[in-house]
Nucleic acid binder design. Structure first.
Lengths: 334, 334
DNA sequence: CAACCATCGGCAAACGTTTGCCCCAGCGGC
DNA sequence: GCCGCTGGGGCAAACGTTTGCCGATGGTTG
């Protein structure tokens, strides 16, 4: 296990000064071509790769970007990880993945530790409160996903719009009483969807009953399903696909036919939504594009030649209709 | 957006030299407690966090570890990512995620670029050939997953053993002619499973027909399913769950009852295996544990006080029986 | 022939941290 | 009163890279 070769080794091997070696490799035309060839050949032969650490120290930029997610376990974030990874790779940035463990403290600890080390961060579904998020956004180039911060660039996925679409879809199938199985109170998306549902419900002449909040995990779908049955609805919009999977599990367990007796709509279209039977009708969120867009915004801010200014990218969603939604059953009046 | 505070700022604020500030924060007892308190207070007030870059340069260690996967998209790697992330986080290491794009060149490029920058790497299912892998293993502390390298620590998941179990399971259900829908020729796991299947088939009195190789993607399950039907088998062991999902899709499309007319067994038990209907019987690989173990091995090697020596951890698998396997149909002799 | 310029290479500082070495003050023992 | 020891603090080098500045060389122009 030998120490990696440094610029000093390359310089020695080609008989020039370190500064010349550096320029030969990074500043085309700055040194005589014959010298440059010699240096490049030596570098190749030694297997030289510049130390990102050394570079970072002298340039003040590390060419690393962190992605903070509350929970790497959640398939929701897989798409975001993919998107940011692809975008960062395209510009040769290193991708640091941080699991904030759903905890405000862990998230702040990670930000503090990473601030001197990475050039910027993408915060997906941050658990930080508004004040702290705003404070951090002044200290550190960052872009949020699904979490608007004043005067800060961000990516929003318009699941609220999709929710309206989904309700219209259910209304057109004859559903008149629909549940919304809500997510965490702290969720920005959840708040927006509630608002949209209230107005859409009025417009469409549908009763929407709000159930929850539920923790968006498959296990918690049981409680949500039971609440739906008790609330006497014929369809349910779940906060996300995981919750919807759990609802499907529980309905199957209780022998409730989907979509015959109950229609189920998820949100996000994560991996697996087309694996369940019946396939899950869901509001497809372009998560990979969201991650890509977030990284793109961040890279733009990091580029000093870039115009600047804050941008908010809002990505549209669309409803993917699969087998879990169908015409409303005849209402049984008790 | 202010420059993060450095040790110099802390030293100035507390009226001591940089070296004293450094020691006050990192060498308990080395400086007078009264002085140390002053320094710590200044650090706290300024929001000081040590620069990993500066540390790395002086110590030669970056406290970063890279995880190279061929394709972040594949749910197989989600578990590994989770496991390594958790283990690295526990020791305060930073987790660098690299997608090698299923390409030997990209993988080597990443290794070359990362060598001076990270302390070590976990290579999951490397696409590198043996020679290059061996060469790299001499240059760079690394641990492989499912890819044995001579004189190098690694983690192996015994899916071959699980395959034997799965075949026995099928035999006990009366299957007498079973297909193996193979994965890529280059796969080490695939080669081992073939060997195990050959001997197990003899012992159990089962005919195993080898089909493929198939690309382990859901889309390629269609070809695998058609090949199975043509080969006149009553059960199929798929290289992995993704392929099995695709086989299930195609069988459903062609109206073949699972498990009535055909039993299907997957491998890995990825996210989603219990979402399909019928649930997929599969060889459960402890992927999160594998990632955890790999990171653990690597961290051990990086610790200078550690005994040393190379270790190979072999993790057992077990068969998870769900709905996709059942008793063999009566053979139709044509 | 002098003044000027372009080309090319080297010196040294800077980035932030750690750490070996040295210095100084204070104190106890003789 | 001198020696030696110890506790506590600073100086400076080192890590690998980039880059502003300078100097040397050789050629061109007036």
């Amino acid at each position: 296990m030998t120490r990696p070769p440094t610029l000093r080794d390359v310089a020695a091997a080609s008989g020039v000064a370190i500064s010349t070696a550096s320029r030969a490799l990074t500043k085309p035309g700055r040194v005589n071509e014959r010298t440059a060839v010699r240096v490049r050949e030596a570098a190749r032969q030694l297997g030289y790769a510049p130390s990102a650490t050394g570079r970072a120290l002298s340039s003040g930029r590390t060419r690393m970007v962190a992605l903070l997610v509350p929970d790497v376990t959640n398939p929701y974030f897989f798409g975001i990880v993919r998107g940011t990874a692809a975008r960062l790779r395209a510009d040769g940035y290193v991708h640091v993945l941080v699991d904030a463990e759903e905890s405000v403290e862990a998230e702040e600890r990670a930000l503090r530790a990473l601030r001197p080390t990475v050039d910027g961060a993408v915060l997906a579904a941050s658990r930080l409160d508004d004040d702290r998020l705003t404070a951090w956004s002044h200290e550190f180039p960052m872009v949020t996903v699904n979490r608007p911060v004043p005067d800060q660039s961000g990516v929003l996925v318009d699941t609220a719009g999709g929710t309206g679409q989904a309700l219209a879809h259910l209304a057109s199938l004859g559903h008149r009483r629909v549940a919304y199985a809500a997510g965490p109170r702290a969720s920005w998306s959840d708040r927006r969807r509630r608002a949209v549902l209230r107005t859409a419900a009025k417009r469409l002449g549908v009763d929407v009953v709000f159930l929850g909040p539920f923790v968006p995990r498959r296990e918690d779908g049981a409680a949500a399903a039971d609440a739906c049955l008790h609330a006497d609805v014929t369809a349910v919009l779940a906060f996300d696909d995981l919750l919807a999977f759990g609802i499907l599990d529980r309905l199957a367990e209780r022998g409730i036919d989907v979509p015959g007796a109950m229609s189920v709509v998820g949100c996000d279209d994560v991996f697996g939504a087309d694996l369940v039977r019946p396939g899950l009708t869901t509001i497809a969120a372009p998560l990979e594009r969201a991650g890509h867009a977030a990284a793109d915004l961040l890279l733009g801010r990091l580029d000093p030649t870039h115009p600047g200014g804050t941008v908010t990218v809002e990505l549209p969603t669309h409803l993917v209709v699969r087998g879990s939604t169908g015409t409303a059953p005849l209402r049984v009046v008790r």
